[in-house]
């Protein structure tokens, strides 16, 4: 009886990826048409030059970035949570996002303005953050050869909080040195997270980096799941734990950095999307990773639509992702099990 119910539940969740793909397409359609300058399908089809112009130069790049950015944050969130064996280890919780944004801000201020410089600097910042967080966590006994089960995987989140405030301090120093006339406002606005500044010309580079990283993560899905097993056990299953973890963290950080260097910090999507995906599928197969990405895309696209339609002036998108994310985080803490992830 019980297994029968389980199987029924299983069959009910099977179409989840397809449904969310449809939902994502619907969100895209709304995102293409909604905004300060409303577009209508008839006028576009009639060949209205102004409408076409807005669609091509503003809406399409923006929607594309929302979908890809959300997808990347959701998928990377799944990877970080799985590899760190912690349901709270989303990129913005363990300091990757703030590290990357500090790196990107550094590039905006001091490096020649180019997409590659910003992305690379964000990537370096994100990596540095992961490295410091891992170092702190293993010093506290959470990781590495002398992994102390009592310290648990919670230490990576504590270390992440420390790294997050470190990165914030660095950002503050950067802001102090910024030119208040020209640079300060733009950095400030960018940190708040927005898809406002996207133009067609900036898209290809970031998309390429992001897609390469995501492809790697999808190909390595089986290894990502194996890394969620205890280190000693994984090693005896033939996983080169140290190297594999490094490779996967590099790819996931690259993905996050490529998004953040365009959009600024977007909070909670990397936490929220994988959790909903896991609640829907209750396994951690490839479709759960895919679903994390799709849900991330839906969340960010929806938040972006709200950001540009809710008020007279455009709002930072993080306001809406946080409005969704903060209650959900509370729910996770009160449930204490991270959506059925942990047995203990």
């Amino acid at each position: 009886m019980r297994t029968e119910q389980k199987q029924n539940a299983k069959q009910n969740t099977r179409p989840a990826p397809y449904l969310s793909a449809l939902l994502l397409l619907a969100a895209c359609a709304v995102s293409l048409l909604a905004g300060k300058y409303p577009l209508s399908l008839e006028k576009i089809l009639a060949g209205d030059a102004m409408q076409l112009q807005v669609l091509l130069t503003l809406r399409i790049p923006r929607t594309l970035m929302a979908v890809l950015g959300g997808f990347a944050l959701g998928a990377a969130g799944f990877v970080f949570q799985t590899v760190f064996r912690n349901p709270l280890a989303a990129p913005d919780m363990i300091g990757v996002s703030s590290g990357a944004s500090a790196g990107a801000a550094f590039a905006i201020l001091f490096l020649p303005a180019s997409a590659a410089a910003v992305t690379l600097s964000a990537f370096a910042g994100g990596l540095l953050a992961v490295g410091i967080a891992l170092g702190l966590a293993s010093a506290a006994g959470g990781y590495g050869a002398r992994r102390n089960p009592a310290a648990g995987s919670g230490s990576i989140v504590l270390a992440g909080i420390a790294v997050h405030s470190l990165a914030q301090t660095f950002l503050m120093v950067l802001k102090l040195t910024a030119d208040p006339e020209r640079q300060l406002a733009s950095i400030e606005y960018w940190i708040m997270g927005s898809l406002n500044a996207i133009t067609l010309g900036r898209i290809p580079f970031y998309c390429a980096v992001c897609v390469i990283g995501l492809t790697g993560l999808f190909l390595l899905h089986r290894q990502i799941i194996l890394l969620s097993v205890d280190e000693a056990e994984a090693r005896m299953l033939g996983v080169p734990v140290g190297r594999m973890r490094l490779l996967i963290l590099l790819l996931a950080t690259l993905v996050v950095a490529s998004v953040i260097s365009v959009t600024g910090v977007i909070s909670f999507i990397g936490l929220l999307a994988p959790h909903i995906a896991r609640l829907l599928t209750r396994d951690n197969r490839l479709r759960t990773l895919l679903l994390s990405g799709l849900l991330g895309g839906i969340l960010l696209t929806a938040a972006d639509i709200l950001a540009r339609t809710a008020a007279a002036s455009e709002l930072p998108v993080s306001i809406f992702t946080s409005l969704l994310g903060a209650p959900f985080l509370l729910y996770l803490i009160m449930n204490g099990n991270g959506g059925g992830r942990h047995a203990e």
Binding site: R85, V229, H342
Partner: peptide, 14 residues
């Protein structure tokens, strides 16, 4: 083949 006291599988999977 190593079988620990309790397997350290921390996430849901079939």
């Amino acid at each position: 083949s190593y079988i620990p006291q309790r397997s350290g599988i921390a996430i849901s999977m079939p």
